[in-house]
Design a protein around this nucleic acid. Structure first.
Length: 377
DNA sequence: TCGCCGGTACATCATCAGCG
DNA sequence: CGCTGATGATGTACCGGCGA
């Protein structure tokens, strides 16, 4: 009745089953289908992949209903690196699927001269509190602990598991908490209790307190939201100034929708990259939304506009991306002869799930996308 | 000194052509 | 028709100059 779905690494699923009570239910392991086989996924899994794909998904029953998404991240936790996975947390949470996000508390990074601890950015913790609050479903972080004494030197001193060398040590305090969370989720599912109720479970209340505790532990050092990534690349302007900015870019008066005009303020995320690329900016954009714009569960529930601006990218560059998709992959391309599940998927949902991640996330999340020569809204 | 963040190396995936 | 290797796209993690 439980199944564990994995994206590209089967050992994630095996590890999960080993360290939690999942093993008691003899769960099947399945691979998430991507690309042309996307339609093979159960409907409810398709839904939570509309922005991005997590490392593992636990489902229950038939048709399979996702109950928990899981992400394991081994990347150094400072700067924007953790944020790039936030879109997949939000995609799950917004369809009522709980989430566990594991990332390093700190990691030893080698620099030209010696090395140093790269310690976690506090903002992902705050973003996760907000995601949980708005969607009324637990989206909970767990630290992948590190130690110079007992950690794996080649992995930046992260504590790694004996049996699964790419995974966090199951005997660390945080991974025990993680296993407890997975087990709690299983209990709620089996008792047919909803996740909204789980938000008031003592375990979750305790964990949320822990999240704020860990947030402030770091935030204290620089007690200004906008001095932590990715808000360091953002500025807040009046919406009247936004209208002016757009007019400058496109040369004519923009006809912005009323819901944009009606919000007094606008936050502009302005990465200075020359490439139109997904990571880490897609995830950061979602993080910025939950940190500084949202006041509810949908993209319309915002008290402030969310704009992403690529001052060094031309619209042509983005256009190239969806033109390539249309010409080579989209089943709607005029020369397509196939009448398969991929075509049927598109007849039902368009390219919601199959077009490039950049296009999915930026266009779904931002109120307005600004290039150096164009605006999309 | 600490953390940022754009660039990049590299791994992996899906797809497809060529081959037995 | 299945296998295999090539290829381009995508995703992960790392690097290190730099600025506060």
């Amino acid at each position: 009745m439980f199944k564990v779905w994995y994206h590209d690494n089967k050992s994630f699923a095996e590890y999960l089953i080993k360290i939690t009570n999942l093993g008691n239910y003899n769960p099947q392991i399945e691979k998430i289908s991507l690309g042309r086989n996307f339609a093979d996924n159960p409907d409810a899994i398709q839904k939570i992949l509309y922005l991005d794909v997590p490392d593992a998904i636990i489902t229950y029953g038939f048709p399979e209903k996702p109950v928990l998404g899981i992400e394991f991240c081994a990347e150094a936790p400072s700067g924007h690196d953790i944020f790039q996975r936030v879109a997949r947390v939000v995609a799950s949470a917004s369809f009522g699927t709980a989430f566990a996000f594991i990332f390093p508390e700190k990691k030893w990074v080698i620099r030209r001269i010696g090395g140093r601890w790269d310690i976690y950015n506090p903002l992902p913790l705050r973003a996760l509190v907000n995601i949980s609050t708005f969607h009324k479903v637990p989206a909970i972080p767990f630290f992948w602990e590190a130690s110079q004494l007992s950690g794996n030197k080649s992995e930046g001193f992260l504590l790694t598991d004996q049996e699964f060398p790419n995974m966090p040590d199951r005997n660390s305090a945080e991974m025990k908490k993680f296993a407890e969370f997975v087990n709690l989720t299983i209990t709620y599912v089996l008792q047919n209790r909803n996740f909204e109720e789980m938000m008031f479970d003592p375990f979750i209340l305790e964990r949320v307190a822990w999240m704020w505790d860990k947030y402030h532990e770091r935030y204290r050092r620089k007690p200004d939201l906008y001095s932590w990534s990715p808000l360091t690349s953002c500025k807040i302007i009046k919406t009247s100034e936004l209208v002016e900015l757009v007019r400058e870019k496109i040369g004519i008066e923009p006809n912005l929708p009323h819901y944009i005009i009606d919000r007094a303020d606008t936050i502009v995320y302005e990465p200075s990259t020359r490439n139109f690329r997904a990571d880490p900016y897609t995830g950061s954009l979602v993080g910025i939304d939950y940190l500084t714009c949202r006041n509810g569960e949908s993209v319309r529930h915002r008290y402030r506009n969310l704009v992403i601006h690529f001052p060094h990218v031309s619209f042509q560059k983005m256009k190239k991306m969806f033109v390539r998709y249309y010409k080579e992959e989209c089943p709607f391309r005029p020369n397509n002869e196939e009448t398969d599940t991929y075509l049927t998927l598109h007849l039902r949902d368009g390219c919601r799930y199959t077009k490039q991640k950049e296009l999915r996330i930026y266009c779904y999340i931002a109120d307005l996308l600004l290039f150096h020569d164009a605006a999309l809204y």
